[in-house]
């Protein structure tokens, strides 16, 4: 997915709101717009690919498709924990790139209204560089992830 199209989608989301899938990583609540998500599956046997960055855990077989998986903890620089039966792989599709995101657990899908979206945090350090905006609804703070940045950069 090229940058222009992605930015267009972001602008549309900011203007109209939309549905996001909530999940937790290291007890923090994160969200991804559901239109990037194709499915959510449990943890699978992962084939290691040597000589790639450590956050790329390898590839999995999803119905005959070979899909690379990214451990979101490792991507954020948070210590990894062993996978358990709540560990999920969220499969997202960004244009031609299909990738699985390993997260601690998946929560629910919520609808976000435009007025609940707060602007991007100003100072970008390593731990929050993937956060696109902050969503405040039902007195809870949720962090909306910048999927493109998470996967592509």
């Amino acid at each position: 997915m090229n940058e222009d199209l992605y930015n267009e989608l972001v602008a549309q989301f900011n203007a109209e709101g939309g549905e996001i899938l909530m999940f937790t990583v290291d007890r923090m609540l994160y969200g991804i717009e559901i239109h990037y998500i194709t499915e959510i599956i449990g943890i699978q046997p992962i084939t290691i690919i040597p000589k790639v960055p450590s956050f790329i855990k390898g590839v999995i077989n999803i119905r005959g498709k070979v899909v690379p998986v990214i451990n979101v903890r490792a991507r954020f620089g948070i210590p990894e924990v062993p996978y358990d039966d709540r560990t999920c792989i969220i499969v997202v599709e960004l244009g031609e790139i299909v990738v699985g995101l390993i997260v601690d657990r998946v929560r629910e899908v919520i609808t976000v209204k435009p007025n609940e979206i707060c602007s991007t945090p100003g100072n970008q350090n390593k731990s929050n560089q993937f956060i696109r905006s902050i969503i405040e609804s039902n007195d809870e703070i949720k962090l909306l992830l910048d999927v493109r940045k998470l996967v592509m950069e």
């Binding site: 690919i49 790639v52 790329i56 690379p68 031609e96 790139i97 299909v98 990738v99 592509m152």
Partner: peptide, 9 residues
């Protein structure tokens, strides 16, 4: 995947 190709596999 093009994602992996970027890391010179």
């Amino acid at each position: 995947s093009p994602l992996l190709n970027r890391y010179n596999v």
